[in-house]
């Protein structure tokens, strides 16, 4: 990008509409920054500002678009003519369960989140997901008792709640999927034997001698040892 362009972009202003009022904000801001520039202050509904915490779910509409759009306010760039509003929170109760006591049978997700049986496969949840998760597919996997698939498909979920806000069947997708991942981790994922063995070895003191040597090294010696470490061949 040339220097002239940079200046042009810095000076350019765009219009955003927030709750019926139009504001002029500089181009190149995220939705969250643009709203803050306009004077809104986020006490809730903002968190990491890096697209990971899922606190800043937002809905917007472009002037010439019949569709409502969904995003994270800290990630999506504000555009000229956007209608913006922040969702502070999606009311969605979580079912109470004790992971150690539940029976990880195939219909366990249905037991704690029976409303998944109301899914009409409209796919509205998937369209709302800012993480591009196939949300409906994991709800369907959950309905047929495939916990592993539910866990795998929902892995990138950041619990923003947009799917749940949009669902015509009142499903609490993200809580249900979290339960699936917990059950998967606790009961279904393969146990890494080598890790357990290594932990035992560490407890038994097999590596105490080696660790002691490392602890005694100064920075220079550590650097040399690091450079000379055994590496796995790149495949």
């Amino acid at each position: 990008m040339g220097k002239g362009n940079m200046n042009e972009q810095e000076n350019a202003m765009i219009r955003i509409h927030v709750m019926g009022k139009t504001y002029q904000v500089p181009a190149g801001l995220t939705i969250m920054d643009a709203m803050e520039y306009s004077g809104y202050r986020f006490i809730r509904g903002a968190g990491c500002r890096s697209g990971f915490c899922g606190a800043c779910s937002t809905i917007y509409r472009r002037e010439e678009d019949y569709r409502l759009q969904f995003a994270l306010a800290c990630q999506e760039m504000a555009e000229d003519g956007m209608y913006l509003v922040q969702l502070p929170f999606t009311p969605a109760p979580r079912s109470k369960y004790n992971l150690e006591e539940i029976d990880p049978s195939e219909n366990v997700l249905l037991q704690y989140y029976p409303e998944i049986a109301r899914c009409v496969s409209c796919n509205t949840c998937t369209k709302a997901c800012p993480q591009d998760i196939e949300v409906m597919d994991y709800v369907q996997a959950a309905l047929r008792g495939d916990i592993a698939r539910t866990a795998a498909l929902s892995f990138d979920c950041i619990q923003c709640g947009l799917c749940t806000m949009r669902c015509p069947a009142d499903i609490k997708h993200y809580h249900m999927a979290q339960m699936a991942r917990r059950i998967y981790g606790r009961y279904l994922s393969p146990v890494p034997n080598h890790l357990e063995e290594r932990l035992c070895e560490i407890e038994e003191g097999v590596y105490d001698n080696e660790l002691g040597k490392l602890m005694a090294m100064n920075k220079e010696e550590l650097g040399i040892a690091y450079a000379a470490r055994i590496r796995e061949e790149a495949k």
Partner: peptide, 25 residues
């Protein structure tokens, strides 16, 4: 690949297209 629940019962009202989505999908 990628089938979904059929909905198990056919919707019997004239105006209801929502409950046809699962089957048509």
């Amino acid at each position: 690949e990628r089938w979904n629940c059929c909905g198990t019962v056919f919707s019997l009202t004239e105006d209801d297209l929502m409950h046809q989505l699962a089957t048509i999908r």
